[in-house]
Design a protein around this nucleic acid. Structure first.
Length: 477
RNA sequence: GGCUCCAUAGUCUAGCGGCCUAGGACGUUGGCCUCUCACGCCGAUAACAUGGGUUCGAGUCCCAUUGGAGUCACCA
């Protein structure tokens, strides 16, 4: 049995978008699941769209997410080069072979003539005008140096059927197929041609890609047939949408992998989430490690319909990964986020301890603790709390005592601070809440905070805590 | 517009003729826990697009309608 070989073939046009990453993920998983090889090939036949640095982003993202390819531009392999622009000589040779066998032909038509072609069913279709050119005429125009393209000669009758692993049998009438260009006038192959040649030359026997190629696949198969090559297995995948009508696309500024990382999502969560968009395991697993994905992945679980990218569910998954991080790992990962804002002035370990269970993305750390540097006027009705039986009046009584208790605390940590507050409550013969609630409000001016009164006092430090208490007491009059 | 494909709750999905009074998850929501919030735990909410068939029996098969996606480039 021949070894399974899948490939991921992106064009270097910027950040790796989510749909592309998912295609790479599935290709990788399917290959590894079957002891096959996963190959990376860069499709840069359109120099106009080339973006500087895009290739490096692809390498980095794939390595970072664990989608390590067995062969590729930067890791080598027996079927290189793995960058299409470096294989240009190959294509013309194969195109000429097709011209020889009648499966393709030279076309000298000008853009102007093409534009005069009548539109059929809303689309302009090439009329095979140059197919009837005589050998002599072609030779003459070639010798004269006329610009030309090479077109695939499609059959005009009958139909072509192929089997797709997720969509089943797909049949397209040959009359729907246009005589597509194989070699452009600049001598470069089109994607449609290079793709087939390279896949065959690289021994790719399983093609996984987006559904946008579903209806053009018959054209590729006709090419395989013309060369007498064996057709690969096809696995097309539904698109990932932004909403019911629009595809997620980087052109619209939608999230790329890099964007998500920059927004504070963990790569594990991103991979886990996109694996679930359009695929589901046999059991009801949702949170899965990379290894679990590998063992559970199966193409029979791939869906046929488009799925909408839901940032809310991604955030939920992300929070799950955040919670299981060790305090050390969390602190490590949070460091850059803490470093770029006011939080760097506070005890980092405490900041981490207070936020780890309260955030879904790292970007939320800053806003969660903004009150540490913003403390102004606040409505005294915040002291009202039905359950704790507190209000501005009870606060007026309790707060000075809290201040005095805190002033006497010798060891400024949560344990001692909490102990002091509890002690005060018991001395006053009231429920803990009667002291804790107003203390927290007086320190933050917020109805909800990421931590209780003592934890916040610990973070604020002795000086700031006493100062805030003083100010709040004054305001109550 | 032609062609191809798709159609279970707001969202991601399970379901491959009887096990479905349709399961899981996110979200929303009620409660418990609790130094507020969050976490955690328990419960609730909401779907088979419509209409015809086939069958003893249809979310599951067929057809039509409707809705949606993809494609029709010297872009990939």
């Amino acid at each position: 049995m021949t070894q399974l070989r899948t490939r991921f073939a992106p064009s270097p046009t910027g950040y790796l978008h989510i749909g592309g990453l998912r295609t790479a993920l599935y290709s990788y998983l399917y290959a590894k699941k079957n002891n096959g090889k996963f190959i990376l090939r860069i499709e840069d036949t359109d120099q106009g769209r080339y973006v500087e640095g895009a290739v490096e982003i692809i390498y980095r993202t794939l390595h970072e997410t664990g989608l390590n390819y067995d062969e590729g531009p930067d890791v080598g392999g027996d079927y290189g080069p793995y960058i299409q622009s470096q294989r240009s000589d190959e294509y013309m040779k194969y195109a000429l072979q097709l011209v020889e066998s009648g499966h393709a032909y030279y076309c000298f038509c000008s853009e102007e003539r093409l534009e005069t072609l009548p539109a059929v069913n809303g689309a302009r279709r090439y009329d095979k005008h140059c197919l009837s050119l005589s050998k002599e005429e072609i030779a003459e125009r070639l010798a004269r140096g006329d610009k030309f393209v090479i077109r695939q000669n499609m059959p005009t009758t009958g139909s072509t059927t192929y089997h797709d692993a997720v969509y089943g049998d797909i049949t397209i009438d040959n009359s729907e197929l246009e005589d597509q260009i194989l070699i452009k006038s600049d001598g470069m192959p089109t994607y449609n041609f290079a793709n087939v040649i390279d896949d065959h030359l690289m021994g790719i026997n399983c093609v996984m890609r987006g559904i946008e190629y579903l209806s053009s696949t018959p054209k590729y198969n006709l090419l395989y047939d013309a060369f007498g090559w064996e057709r690969p297995m096809y696995i097309h995948m539904p698109p990932i949408m932004k909403d019911a009508q629009h595809k997620l696309s980087k052109r619209n500024g939608d999230a790329s992998y890099e964007d998500l990382i920059n927004k504070g999502f963990l790569k594990e969560a991103i991979i886990n989430y996109i694996a679930l968009l359009g695929w589901s395991p046999k059991d009801d697993s949702e949170k899965m490690s990379f290894d679990e994905l590998l063992s559970k992945f199966d193409i029979s679980g791939i869906n046929k319909s488009p799925s909408i990218f839901d940032p809310v569910k991604l955030a939920w998954l992300n929070s799950l990964y955040i919670k299981e991080m060790t305090p050390e790992a969390f602190a490590d990962y949070a460091a850059p986020w803490i470093e770029k804002c006011y939080l760097k002035n506070f005890d980092k370990a405490l900041v981490c301890k207070l936020t780890q269970s309260r955030i879904e993305t790292f970007a939320e750390i800053e806003e969660k603790l903004r009150f540490l540097v913003e403390f102004g006027e606040f409505d005294s009705s915040l002291y009202d709390n039905q359950k704790q039986k507190t209000n501005a009046d009870t606060a007026r009584e309790v707060l000075p005592k809290v201040r005095d208790k805190f002033a006497k605390v010798d060891q400024w940590d949560n344990e001692h601070l909490y102990g002091a507050l509890i002690e005060l409550a018991s001395e006053l013969g009231v429920k803990n809440g009667k002291v804790l609630w107003p203390a927290r409000i007086a320190l933050t001016g917020l109805a909800a905070t990421p931590g209780g009164a003592s934890e916040i006092a610990e973070l604020l430090g002795r000086e700031e805590t006493l100062s805030r208490l003083e100010r709040s007491i004054e305001r109550l009059g």
